[in-house]
Structures are given as C-alpha cells and as structure tokens.
C-alpha cells in the first residue's frame, strides 16, 4: 500500500505559501501522492487551481482530488481543468469525483441538486472521451476514481472509473466497502480489480485544534461531526495502527489529510511513517 498526504486546502489559516511549501516537502518525503478536498461553502482553496500550482513545485508525487464535487462544475469546463492540470503535471493526475454531501454547495454554485448523479455519470463518460465535442488537452491518461457509498455510486465507479475513493472510517468499514467495490467491478464485467483508495485525518502537533476543525468542517452532518472528530489520528501509534489496518483491508493508496495548517505536520507524519 502507498501512503499519500493531504494538502491543508480546507483547514483554517492556510495560505498560498503554506500550500506550496507543504507540497514541496511532501514531494521530498516518503509520500506517494498529495491530495486535496473540495468544498465550496467553506474557507478553502479550489482543488484544480491548487493542484496546478502544486504541479509547478513538485516533480515526483501524484496529484489527486479526493474527491472533487464534479456536478458543481460544467462538464466541459471540468474536463478542461482536469486535462490542463494533467498536462502541466505530466501524467501525474488522479481525479476522484463524487456528488458530495452538501446541498448548500449546489445552491451557492447555482446548480440544481437534483439530477446530480446523472450529471456525474455524464462527466465521467466525457472524461473517458465520450461525446462528439472533445476539445483537448486530452483527458486520456487521467486516473479516475469515484467516491460514494450507494449502489448507484459503486455502479458509476465500476462503469467509468479506474478505482474507488472511500470516504473514511475505521479499517473495518473500508474492508466492507472494498468488497462492495470489487463486487460492482466484476458485475460490470471490468477486467482486473479496481484501485482502492482510502483516507483518514491526522493531527500530530495540535490535536485539539485539529479535532475542533473537524467538528466545524462536518457541522453540517449534525451528530456525525463528533464521530469524525473522534476518528482523528492524534498520535504516532494511532497513525501506524490505522495504516496497518488499511493495508490489511486491501487498500492500494491511503491518503492522510491534515487537520491543522502547520507545515511541520508533513515532517511529523513522515517521521511517524518511517520504519
């Protein structure tokens, strides 16, 4: 299993300089990927713009959205953004897409919340090169992941994507989602297996601040915010157990997202993960 690190593009206090320094350190560290989150109605950096900048200051790591809310964007524009980042980054891009969980993001984007699933399917098909009007740069070679827990999401994943982006939780939850993802993959008659990506949150420097951020970030979920905060990995041992658990559950790539905007977190995580 590969381990990647998230960028603090949605954590409070992050600025452009921090994001780029974070990415540089990650590029030099043991991480396979740097990944971003996507949220419109929150103080946060836009994922594709962020990854374009990151592409310029890194050369080794993969760049990933984990996930981006596809339907907030028009299909052709989304494809153009992704293809442009992929072109700048030199075939290092993984685009994870989902419908997201917040109605509010749709309202503010001025996009209809209804029909979001079908629109995401259209976007995925388009990113795969379907449709007469394709403009370039080419989207070919972009690794596609799909997130979401419903049967519809899994079907969409198996139909169009290269793999599955799990939404987070303990290793056991990942393992059972992995079974469902593989079942969908073989039901759609895809050869081989889906790539399986997992994610978790960590705060090694200032756990209180990290958990407070998670409670705020997930406040829209009501009682689940507390659960997400309770899952924040706040010590070396917790991180290592989590990584081991995900590896045993069949995860191919695990992204650990920061919850505090402190660039030293990159080094702390690197140290915790060093054998």
């Amino acid at each position: 299993m590969r381990v990647g690190i998230g960028l603090p593009n949605t954590t409070p206090g992050a600025d452009g300089a921090l994001l780029l320094e974070w990415a540089r350190r990650a590029d030099g560290g043991p991480f396979s990927t740097v990944a971003v989150l996507d949220r419109l109605v929150y103080d946060s950096f836009e994922p594709f713009t962020t990854l374009a900048a990151v592409a310029a200051v890194t050369s080794r790591v993969r760049l990933a959205t984990m996930i981006a809310i596809g339907p907030l964007r028009g299909t052709a524009l989304l494809a153009k953004q992704a293809a442009s980042v992929a072109a700048v980054a030199g075939a290092r891009l993984t685009v994870g897409l989902g419908v997201g969980a917040r109605r509010e993001d749709y309202a503010v984007a001025g996009v209809d919340h209804r029909g979001r699933g079908t629109r995401l399917s259209e976007q995925l098909a388009y990113l795969r090169g379907a449709g007469e009007r394709q403009f370039g740069p080419p989207t070919e070679g972009i690794e596609l992941l799909v997130g979401g827990a419903s049967g519809q999401a899994l079907t969409r994943m198996a139909r169009y994507a290269d793999g599955y982006a799990h939404g987070g939780g303990p290793p056991r939850a990942f393992a059972s989602a992995a079974v469902r993802a593989r079942a969908a993959w073989s039901d759609l008659g895809r050869p081989g297996r889906p790539a399986l990506w997992g994610q978790g949150y960590f705060a090694l420097g200032d756990p209180e601040r990290g958990s407070a951020y998670l409670r705020d970030y997930y406040a829209f979920t009501g009682p689940f915010a507390e659960r997400v905060a309770a899952g924040n990995l706040t010590g070396g041992r917790a991180v290592r157990d989590f990584v081991r658990g995900y590896a045993a559950a069949g995860c191919d790539e695990l992204i650990l997202f920061p919850t505090v905007s402190d660039v030293a977190e990159v080094d702390r995580l690197a140290e915790v993960l060093s054998p």
Partner: peptide, 28 residues
C-alpha cells in the same frame, strides 16, 4: 472494450442500435 470503462460509445466505426424502445442507455 471494457478495459477502459463500460458503455462508452465508439467515436468512429459505430453501427446502428436496436432495442425494445427508442431510449439511449447511458450518457452520450
């Protein structure tokens, strides 16, 4: 072919489709 995804129409060399009713299956 399914290695690159399923139900993604060919861009060239297509052939006419037939079904019980005239409704497309998936986007595009």
């Amino acid at each position: 072919p399914r290695a690159q995804g399923v139900d993604i129409p060919l861009s060239s060399g297509k052939w006419p489709l037939v079904s019980a009713s005239a409704m497309p299956y998936a986007p595009f």
